[in-house]
Structure formats: C-alpha cells, structure tokens
Design a protein around this nucleic acid. Structure first.
Lengths: 188, 188
DNA sequence: GTCTATAAGAGGATAGAC
DNA sequence: GTCTATCCTCTTATAGAC
C-alpha cells in the first residue's frame, strides 16, 4: 500500500534525464550523471531502459505526442469567421499551452535548432513527421489557409523563441499587440 | 618561396575546427575528427594548439574581437538626427555585417543559446563582457538611447535568429519594412 | 613539424551475485 | 530491482623517435 505512494525508480530516471537532456544537451548528459542524481548505479538504469538513445527518444516522443494531443484537442473553429480571426484564436490556444510549461518547447527548440550529430537522422525524421501532422491538424481546425500557414508558423516560432530566450511568459495583451502587427505586415 | 603560397597547418586546423564547432558543436567535435579533415595525426595538432579548450576559445575570441572591431569602426552618427534615424542607420550597418557572413553570428547564437556544460562558465563570462563592450560602443555611436537600447537589441537578435534559421539574407528593403513595424510598436 | 605509441580517464553497456 | 565488477571503445593529451 505504501509502495503505491512512492515514485518509481523508472519515473525518477525519466524525470532526471529530461532535465539534464534539456539543460546540458544529449552529448553532455551521461548515464552516470543521471544515475548519480537518481541515487542508483548505472546497471540499474539499464534494467529500466534499453539504452541512452532509447531513453532520450522515449522522452522526445512523449513531448511531441503530448503536443500533438493538445493541438488535436482544439475544437474546429467557426467556419464563418475570417482567416485572421481563426488563426488568432488558434494562436491564443497555442500560447496558453506554451505558458503552462515552456520547458517542453525549449526542449523541442534545442533539438531542432542544433540536433546532436549522433542522433541527427532520427531527430530530422521525427521533426519532419511532426511538422506534417501539425500542419494537417491546423488545417482541420481553421480550414484552408495555405497562403498564411507558413507565415503564421514562422510568427509562432518567433514567439516561442522569445519566450524561451527571455524566460518571460507572454500574456494575452502582448499576444494581441504582436498579432495585430504581424497580421498587418502579412496581408500588406 | 613556394612555401609562402601554401596554407599553414595551424591555419588549416583553425578553419576545420571552426566549421566543426559551428556545425556539430563543442562536445560532438573531437580532436581526431578535426585531424582527419586536415590530414594530420592528433599529436601534430597538439604541437600547434595547447588543448581543445584553447583552440575553441581562440576561435570564439576571434569572432567576438572581429565583431567588436566592426562595431567600433562605425562612425559616430549625426548628433542632430532623431533616435529613430540613428538606430536605423546602426541597424543597416549591422545587417550589412551579418549579410557578409552569417555563419559567425550562427556560431555566437549557438554557444550563447545552448552553452556546452563543459565550458559554461567561460562562455557566460565572455558573453557578459561582450554585451557590456557592445552596449558602450552603441552609446558612443548613437548617443544616449537607454530607453530603446534593450528593445533595439532584442529586435536585432530576432533578425539574426531569423537569418540563421531561414538561411535567407535579409535585404535593405526587408530591413526597412521590419524596422518601421518595430519602431511603431516600440514607441506606442 | 610530423609521426608512432601509449597513457589516463570517461562513457556506454553487460554479466552475474544477492 | 539493485548491486559490484568489468569490458570495450572513444577521447584528450603526452613521450619520444625521426
């Protein structure tokens, strides 16, 4: 009974690895460092996870999956509204997600911007797939918007970069101000 | 006589190391990889450079020094002009520099955004110093502009990020368009 | 200046006892 | 499930011959 209240070793490993992969990067994070932080020996980690590569991509995939799950949960937006209105509503939803925990986006940004040489191919492949899925999901939510999709995503990407770099959470007011400037520029 | 026309081994090492540190990062770049690309053995590299750490910071410092040299070469801007005019002229000069070779800014961006754990302290210290020197130089060029300095640099930073990520060189026309939007937003 | 050989240590991963 | 002990490979760096 008491055991049910304790955090499982595998979960501790997962959490510590997440933090180290996020802050120090894949190459600079070694198994022994993870284990030291968890309070176990290296061989114990290998009981729970097959390899460093596997552990990393379990985490990476979870982050992507959770992100896609959130995107998919956004309901279809009113068909009658203008493209601008619909994309803005989508943006608010996204910002809401980023604001709850920016570290996940920092993780994605880190590995997409500077993928470690050792896992380059896997990262690129997964990133391509995620982009494809995400674009499809956005089309489902707002309908046809091909003319603006790329520009919209570039803008969103900027916002994420800003939040990650500055560590500042961007509120609804800022989002609205930035959006109006962006939209004015895009449609000119 | 003929020897004078050949590239010195130390210069080859320097150039190859620069490219690998830029593309693969500090941790993923090892001495043997550098040597293989140069066509020498590891011990030869250590004849020319003291250590991996030293080689890296020779390159890093050179990039910073060259950047600061360029900033310092920008002549003092007309005292009578408005802050907006002066900052815009400064921006054009900066963009001109970035456009000649964006890879140096990519190098700086990489190591400031995600400094390798192993050399974190050195990077942070040097970055702090560079920022201080750069701010002083900007004040020398445009005069007092404390109210806008931080915002201006954030904008510039965005531009660099955009150029690095997209690989697109931003022309004078784009710069002007982005600037007008930025300035409108800053002064509102 | 460049080489061969090698030290010294870090890192990923496994075998087998408990 | 967790440990000790160990293997193997990779990496930085040095010693000494040519």
């Amino acid at each position: 009974m008491v055991n049910n209240l304790e955090i499982k070793t595998s979960e501790k490993i997962y959490y510590v690895a997440y933090k180290l992969f996020l802050e120090n990067g894949y190459e600079a994070t070694n198994i022994r460092d993870i284990c030291k932080n968890v309070g176990i020996k290296a061989s114990t980690l290998y009981f729970h996870y097959k390899s460093k590569h596997d552990l990393f991509f379990l985490i990476y995939d979870d982050i992507c999956k959770e992100y896609m799950k959130y995107i998919s949960s956004i309901e279809k937006l009113n068909q009658g509204a203008s493209i601008e209105e619909k994309l803005y509503k989508l943006l608010l939803k996204k910002v809401e997600y980023y604001t709850t925990d920016i570290s996940k986006q920092k993780f994605i940004l880190r590995y997409n911007l500077f993928p470690p040489h050792e896992i380059l191919n896997d990262i690129q492949e997964k990133h391509k797939l995620l982009t494809k899925e995400e674009n499809q999901a956005i089309l489902d939510i707002v309908g046809q918007c091909d003319d603006y999709l790329l520009e919209y995503k570039r803008f969103e990407n900027h916002l994420v970069y800003e939040m990650v770099v500055s560590g500042i959470k961007i509120g609804e007011k800022d989002t609205a101000a930035l959006w109006s400037i962006f939209w004015r520029n895009t449609t000119v």
